[in-house]
Design a protein around this nucleic acid. Structure first.
Length: 185
DNA sequence: ATTTTCAAT
């Protein structure tokens, strides 16, 4: 991913009409975590501006996971950094996937919380996803930095945080915690 | 075309 794409999409104060999702996979073996570099990359959604059928980024990600045919006798942790948190529909599909694939753990780190929904309530989607075992958090400075170093063609340049990164991240984190807490009661 | 949250208006 080039620098511009990363900054344009992951800046937590922006609101681009597209979504990028960066993913990486580790195999868990007792206390050890073994990174699987062959399963690392990013996808973006297909929007109305493209010839293909519109499709949210998460569904491409699910397709990729399925194509890997990860060994059901092993345990894996998938980490995905997504510029918009999953909508209700995608959250449901991820929930179903996790229930059917107990050998896979999922950690979702979102830059921003997506709230534009037509077919349901994004809050309950995220809650169900959490209840299915997913860990859902908001990206912090360290997460943006990790993404930069892992997925961006940074040409040796260090990650440069934008103005207000931490303040926004903290605000979104509080918002997400309120969402995830409300529905547990 | 404008405003814009994986578009919607």
């Amino acid at each position: 991913m080039d620098e511009y794409t990363f900054t344009e999409n992951f800046n937590n104060q922006g609101r681009p009409s597209k979504t990028y999702l960066c993913y990486e996979v580790e195999r868990l073996d007792g206390d050890a975590t073994i990174p699987l570099d062959e399963y690392k990359g990013f996808v973006r959604n297909k929007g109305l501006d493209q010839p293909e059928k519109p499709c949210h980024a998460e569904l491409y990600f699910l397709g990729k996971i399925r194509s890997w045919n990860l060994d059901r006798n092993q345990h894996y942790r998938l980490t995905c950094f997504i510029s918009w948190s999953p909508c209700y529909d995608c959250a449901q599909k991820l929930t179903t996937f996790l229930k059917e694939n107990r050998h896979i753990s999922l950690h979702i780190l979102a830059s921003r919380i997506y709230t534009n929904n037509h077919f349901g309530c994004h809050q309950s989607g995220l809650c169900e996803l959490q209840a299915a075992g997913a860990r859902i958090t908001i990206m912090t400075f360290e997460d943006f930095k990790h993404c930069w170093e892992t997925f961006v063609d940074h040409k040796g340049k260090p990650f440069q945080p934008w103005e207000g990164l931490n303040v926004k991240s903290q605000a979104l984190c509080a918002e997400l915690q309120a969402i995830l807490k409300t529905q547990q009661n």
